[in-house]
Design a protein around this nucleic acid. Structure first.
Length: 595
RNA sequence: GGUUCAGUAGCUCAGCUGGAUAGAGCAACGGCCUUCUAAGCCGUAGGUCGCAGGUUCGAAUCCUGCCUGAAUCACCA
């Protein structure tokens, strides 16, 4: 707001002083850097072409003009070609008084068009438990859903479960061969891990078999062809596709075990979905869509009967859509899912939270939907994010080099419990209350750690170093919040009510910068949505918390003698708490009242 | 090989629609708890912003080339 007014001021100034129409894009208003006096800075270099004068002189003239014509600007100073403007005390107070009239995170403007928007995230396979990569995915998706909904979208969170395919059949086979009828309930193993173990078992036995065949002089390819385990797995897939009762029953049973396990993990992570889709239900509609596309001449059939689409006019390759035997591939299912979802929701936008390894796939998906004549394909977006790497390198599920989601969450929770126990600040809490706080802190640390990095970038996860509760971390922000809550409780005990309108007091530097940071929140949410980047929120809330901690350290709130100032500081404290709380909510992080 | 993305302090990351002396946290070192929560605050030390050119009054930021790493170019998902 303030920035916009200033841009107009500069435009006027250039016109009045130099008689020229300035190009608005040449006017740069930015926040004044910390080590200079002022709140906002106009960079005058680009304006020299209008003034024909030296930078300092131009800045002086503009500064003088702005001070006279904009009541919100108090003082200014010029350093080289930078015009640093100080917002007047009254204007800061006025901004703050307006700010606290409504809760933070109220984003009006053109972004609140009541779009119907789908956010798909998680997308697990049912043959293994969730790992760290899924955690990043889930956290990004959940946060994106909250950011978009705050921007006025009607958001539905969806999940697509890959519950069919050869990998599931391998798992079923291993269980049949080696499971001896055991179950998660009976063994006490969490369902998804139970099933995952059989997937690992299959891979192990399969490798063993291959090695045996190779030792008999067969090549890798020949061994793979001769593998009895693999052919049994394929046989199961064939049976599943033809609806063989025994196979389908087992498939259902094992998937149920997995879903129970997933539910526990989702619950522990604190994410949820409005609707879950299953690929076993979308691959058939997908196949129909491909067949129809074939009839309409959008696709073509090769001699072997497989169906393809030619994307060379889009600068891409040919892409397979249906195998020669008529079975579905990944793209087939995704076409089916997309169309099904549009039928269900008539969405304006759909965001797929999927790793950047699938950039190409989603590019193709969107183009194909467009070719099929679905106008809504324009609203399809791939929220592409980078991989999570470990100090040892890439995560590899086949080699067991993964960070298991359940294990990680549990480590975070117990570390939080240990640390809280040592500090002993919650000794009067009941066991349940303590547990709830530990959970918030442990998960807060994990979520913040992952969300604070730019989603597009690959990130490094060092299990030992990542469990930190000091510095730029979730618990640091939660701690700032808990302090605020503590102050507010004390204030209530003292019968103090925060000022709802403050006038005529002189603000100190910390108060000024806090208000400046607070007023930036709403536009920040919009840019986080535009750029699909929760990290923007994370970095912001850290900066705000840090600033508040300095303010808290340097000045007394409740002990302030001037009552007007005290009530203002209380209001500032309260509102800061609201912004911190809302920002963390946007990240999907719960906040403790005490810690 | 083609395409895309990345390379900033010992480590993990900000900054990138061009602007002031490149910022945080961790790790290291040194201070601050009779005062609203020390999971905090303050300070010291630490950087050829991968390399080389170019555009510009001004480049970590834009362009070109090169080096390094990742992803992808599957009848896997």
């Amino acid at each position: 707001m303030m920035e916009k007014t200033l841009t107009e001021n500069v435009l006027e100034a250039v016109k009045t002083l130099y008689g020229k129409e300035a190009d608005p894009s040449k006017i740069q208003v930015q926040e004044t850097r910390k080590d200079f006096r002022g709140d906002l800075t106009v960079v005058v270099f680009p304006l020299l072409r209008y003034s024909g004068k030296l930078p300092e002189q131009t800045a002086e003239e503009l500064g003088e003009y702005i001070r006279e014509n904009n009541a919100q600007i108090g003082n200014y100073n010029v350093i080289k070609g930078f015009l640093n403007l100080e917002i007047s005390n009254a204007a800061i107070l006025d901004t703050f008084n307006k700010l606290i009239k409504h809760d933070p995170g109220f984003t009006s403007a053109d972004h609140s068009n009541d779009y119907t928007t789908l956010v798909e995230y998680s997308s697990p396979n049912t043959n293994k438990p969730l790992h760290l990569g899924h955690i990043r995915n889930n956290l990004l998706g959940y946060s994106l859903a909250r950011i978009l909904s705050t921007c006025g979208h009607k958001v539905y969170k969806t999940n697509i479960v890959n519950d069919r395919g050869i990998h599931i059949c391998k798992t079923m086979l291993a269980w049949k061969l080696y499971g001896k009828g055991s179950t998660p309930a009976e063994t006490g193993v969490k369902g998804d891990h139970f099933v995952g173990d059989y997937y690992v078992r299959f891979e192990k036995e399969y490798r063993k078999e291959i090695n045996e065949l190779k030792s008999q002089g067969l090549s890798q390819e020949e061994a793979a062809e001769r593998s009895s385990l693999m052919s049994q797995a394929r046989e199961l897939l064939r049976k599943w596709e033809t609806g063989d009762k025994e196979t389908v029953d087992l498939w259902k049973r094992m998937n149920e075990w997995v879903y129970e396990g997933f539910d526990t993990t989702y619950n522990a992570l604190g994410v949820d979905f409005d609707k879950i889709y299953f690929e076993s239900e979308t691959y058939k509609p997908g196949r129909e869509i491909v067949r129809k596309g074939l009839d309409d001449g959008v696709f073509y059939k090769k001699d072997d009967g497989s169906v393809w689409v030619d994307l060379s006019s889009d600068g891409l390759d040919e892409k397979l859509l249906l195998r020669a035997d008529g079975t579905a591939v990944y793209m087939t299912q995704d076409l089916g899912t997309a169309v099904l979802r549009y039928k269900d929701y008539t969405f304006d936008h759909q965001y797929y939270v999927v790793g950047n390894e699938q950039d190409y796939h989603f590019q193709v998906l969107k183009i194909i939907l467009g070719k099929l004549g679905y106008e809504w394909s324009e609203g399809i977006h791939h929220f592409s994010y980078g991989m999570v790497n470990l100090p040892e390198g890439k995560m590899k599920s086949r080699e067991g080099k993964v960070v298991d989601a359940d294990e990680l969450i549990n480590t975070m929770l117990s570390t939080a419990a240990d640390m809280s126990g040592e500090l002993g600040k919650l000794n009067d809490y009941t066991g349940e209350e303590k547990k709830s706080v530990y959970r918030k802190i442990g998960l807060g640390a994990l979520k913040y750690f992952i969300l604070k990095v730019d989603p597009r970038k690959n990130m490094m996860f060092n299990p030992a170093e990542s469990i930190d509760f000091n510095g730029n971390t979730g618990p640091f922000i939660q701690y700032s919040y808990a302090r605020i809550k503590s102050v507010m409780r004390k204030a209530a005990d003292m019968g103090l009510v925060p000022a709802d309108d403050t006038d005529g007091i002189e603000l100190n530097a910390k108060e000024r910068s806090l208000v400046n940071i607070l007023r930036a929140f709403d536009t920040l949410i919009i840019s986080a949505a535009d750029e699909l980047n929760p990290a923007i929120i994370a970095n912001y809330v850290y900066e705000l918390s840090k600033e508040f901690n300095q303010f808290y350290h340097d000045f007394s709130i409740l002990g302030e003698e001037n009552n007007m100032v005290r009530m203002f500081r209380l209001a500032l404290t309260e509102y800061t708490g609201k912004v911190i709380g809302k920002a963390m909510w946007l990240l999907g992080i719960d906040m403790p009242e005490r810690m």
